[in-house]
């Protein structure tokens, strides 16, 4: 059963924040205070999560669990970054350079992989999903926008053509707005469930 006290605190906090949003001059300070609490809680939660992650992987290493070498890499990297950061400070240019030198190529390579995966997916998407209104419209629009992306048509500099291109470029927003409205509605209902304790705190 949900404990009543946390539930009441949660519901009241939500309602206070909502009310403060609409009565800004009066509720501004309350809202700012609540948000500051939230920043602190979020920061602590991140620390807790990191500590838990490290402990979990230490346990994996201690137990010799399958793939524990990766856990070893994680723990060593974490400790090295932590110690380096603590000793030199997070603003230290050398520290930032080292961190950037590791992260940037890795992430860029992964993004390159995404391009490759998208190409491979383009080849098989119709085989997997078959012909449907969604796949056909997707295929047609993808081809049109890829052609537009090449820039050949824009370089022709026909005013009429440019008008058509502008119109076509605006078309995806029709579907996107529909999806956004759907997401918004779903989110609104989820927010109500959370706000009134119907969603459960997780630890129920």
């Amino acid at each position: 059963m949900k404990r009543p006290l946390p539930l009441i605190v949660g519901v009241l906090s939500g309602l206070v924040v909502l009310a403060a949003m609409f009565f800004v001059p009066q509720g501004g300070s309350i809202l700012a205070t609540v948000l500051n609490w939230m920043i602190i809680v979020a920061g602590v939660a991140l620390l807790v999560a990191i500590a838990s992650l490290v402990l979990t992987h230490l346990r994996f290493i201690a137990n010799g669990k399958k793939g524990f070498l990766l856990s070893l890499v994680l723990v060593i990297s974490f400790l090295a970054t932590l110690v380096f950061g603590l000793l030199r400070g997070v603003d230290d240019p050398v520290f930032l350079k080292w961190v950037g030198a590791v992260i940037r190529p890795i992430e860029t390579a992964l993004l390159g992989l995404v391009a490759l995966v998208m190409m491979s997916a383009a080849l098989k998407i119709f085989r997997e999903r078959g012909w449907s209104a969604l796949t056909v419209s997707f295929g047609v629009s993808a081809i049109i926008f890829l052609i537009l992306g090449l820039g050949f048509l824009q370089n022709l500099n026909f005013p009429a053509l440019n008008g058509v291109i502008t119109f076509v470029e605006g078309l995806p927003m029709i579907g996107a707005r529909g999806l956004l409205i759907g997401i918004g509605i779903g989110l609104l209902m989820m927010a109500f469930r959370v706000l009134f304790g119907m969603e459960g705190s997780g630890n129920d």
Binding site: V41, A42, A49, S52, S201, G202, N203
Partner: peptide, 13 residues
């Protein structure tokens, strides 16, 4: 971080 903690709470709960 917050999501991880909430998720863990859900699992534990």
């Amino acid at each position: 971080g917050v999501l991880a903690c909430l998720s863990r709470m859900a699992v534990h709960g």
